[in-house]
Nucleic acid binder design. Structure first.
Lengths: 170, 170
DNA sequence: CTGCATGCAAAGAGTTTGCATAGCC
DNA sequence: GGCTATGCAAACTCTTTGCATGCAG
């Protein structure tokens, strides 16, 4: 991609401005996480980065993730019975999580901030952060039949995971 | 409490209707989880139930939680860098999570369903479950100063955990 | 009585940490 | 060159599983 150089130099600047050293491993890890939209797991980052840096270790992945979180570049998404996934989108948004293909899509909604502001006001609760996930079936999986399970945990039924979200009558 | 007998017999019925045996341990575990509003961890359930059933094991806590989830009585709430917490409220609602005292309060909002229905429609995504958390500072902690950290992880700064929620400008 | 549930301990998964070496600044 | 970051492996935390015994139905 044409702008990979731009991304890379901005990553280097960000690390140095925060007092971190910009090592090749950190740059590669950050470049992958910040440019993908697939909300990867730490293991996924590990296997992707290993293609270019075969000696990289999982410990370095986790340390770099922690640094990126510390610098406000990244947040983590936890779900019951599944690994933590990473999200470089720091704007208020919600997640559409497909039970079938395990894909996580971001959805920006203009009304969300108003909604939150009203709840914050009514509940007398000063909101500093949010996390909004909708679980369900994406259009692609409804159209395409079985869907792409490449990101799904092998052999695990997705309906079991649905039990961890408040049911919504459809 | 006066209705503990009612809760107990309804727990027994629920287990038997689903083909589970209603053992004293399961009844005690379920009674505690279903009647508390503090969204306990498995460890908290363990220590509470041990008061009446000193020989109960953590494995039984976890298998009972799994049974309750299976019966649709319970969901789990995961947050980065903290243990899974339990929520017996199965109605669509959102969570107000205080960074200071670690308390989790439920908030029912009449507009939430409309909001979700609209997103579902616009995104062409069939919603089956939801998870909506707001992180911030509760009124009690703002009024009372330091707040009650009895549920907070010892020695851990709560600001670190805030990094895992999309920042909201206040 | 029959078979599921319990309690114990050990295994598992994901993540973190300790330490000697490597390499950024 | 000083000092942080790396890579390896071992430790850690939370959760799950295997198995012999116990007890609900």
């Amino acid at each position: 991609m044409a702008e990979s150089g731009d991304l890379e130099s901005s990553i280097i600047k960000t690390f140095r401005n925060s007092g971190y050293r910009a090592t090749p491993q950190r740059i590669a890890i950050s470049r992958y996480i910040l440019s993908t939209h697939e909300h990867p797991t730490a293991q996924k980052v590990f296997s992707e980065v290993k293609k270019d840096h075969p000696t990289v270790s999982l410990a370095t992945i986790y340390t770099t993730i922690k640094a990126l979180k510390d610098m406000g570049m990244l947040q983590e998404l936890n779900h019951p019975q599944s690994e933590t996934r990473l999200d470089p989108n720091m704007e208020p948004h919600l997640h559409l999580i497909c039970s079938r293909c395990e894909r996580i899509s971001d959805w920006m909604d203009p009304e969300m901030e108003d909604f939150i502001a009203r709840v914050s006001d009514e509940a007398d609760f000063v909101v500093t952060g949010l996390r909004f996930d909708l679980k369900g079936i994406c259009k692609r999986c409804r159209d395409g039949g079985k869907g792409d399970r490449s990101l799904a945990a092998a052999g695990e039924s997705s309906s079991a995971k649905d039990a961890d979200y408040t049911a919504v009558k459809v």
